[in-house]
Amino acid sequence: MLYIEQFVYSNKLRHTHPLERVIFALVTMIMALIIKDWQVHLLIIFSMVILLVYKAKIKASVILKLMLIPLGFLIIGVLTIAFQISSADLNYLFYFNIFNLNIGITVSSLQTAFNTLTVSLSAVSCLYFMTLTTPMVEIIYVLQKLKVPDSIIELMTLIYRFIFVFINTAFNIYYAQQARYGHSTFKKSLNSFAILFGNLWGKAFFKSKNLLQSLESRGFEGNIKVLNPEYSFSKNNIISFVLLDLLIFFTALFLSR
C-alpha cells in the first residue's frame, strides 16, 4: 500500500475532479464483468495501461509489477477451474486417472478458465486505474458524493490517516529494538515482537485519547465535518473516457454478431 501511495500522489491525472476517474473506472469494470469476450477484456487492459502510462505518467514497470500480484493468485485459481474431475469420459484434451476418476482438461473448461483469467485481469486493471490515479482522500470524497453514510466516511478518513501513524510507530519501536539486539536470535525476536504489539496496543489507546482532546478543542460535536478542495472537471478527460467506453462497447457489439 505504501508502494502505491508514492505514485498516486504524483500522477498527472490527479488535478482534475476525482469523480470522472472513479466513474470511468467503475463503468469500464462493469463492462468487463458483463461482456464475456476475451478480446474485449484485452482491449480494456490495454487501454487502462495506456492511460496509466501516457496520461497519468506512471512507469510501465510499476504497472507490470502491480499486475503480477493478482496474476499469481489468478493462475492458481484458474488452474482449479481448468481441471475437471469426472467418472465419465469427457472430451479430455489431457487427463490422468486416479481411483477410477478422470482428472483432466477439456476444451470447454479451458475456455472457462481463460475467460475467468481475462475477466479478472481486466477488472483488476480498472481498479488499478482508479487506485493509481485517485488518492484515498479523494476516493472517500467520491463515496461521500455517492451518499455513503457519514459514519463510514468518518471511519475511513480516520483509519486512512492512522494506518500511517500506526505503521510509523510500529517501525520506530522495531528499529529501537533492533538497535539493542532485540531481534538477534529467533527467540529474542519472538519476545520482542510480543513487546512491540503490546506496546502498540497501549499507544493506540493513548493516541486516540489525545486525538479526541485535540478534536474537541477544535469544536468536535460527535461527527467530523470537513471541506474538500474545489475540484474542476476536465472536458478533455471526460471526452476521452466516454470515447474509450464507447469504443469498448461497440467492439463488444461487433464481436458478438
Binding site: F164, S214, L215, R218, V226, L227
Partner: peptide
C-alpha cells in the same frame, strides 16, 4: 495527535466547518 485527516486541506477546514 492533532492531524486526523490524510488531506491537509480537509484538516485545516475542520475547525471553521
Amino acid at each position: 495527535n492533532q492531524l486526523f485527516s490524510g488531506s491537509v486541506y480537509q484538516d485545516i477546514s475542520y475547525g471553521p466547518v
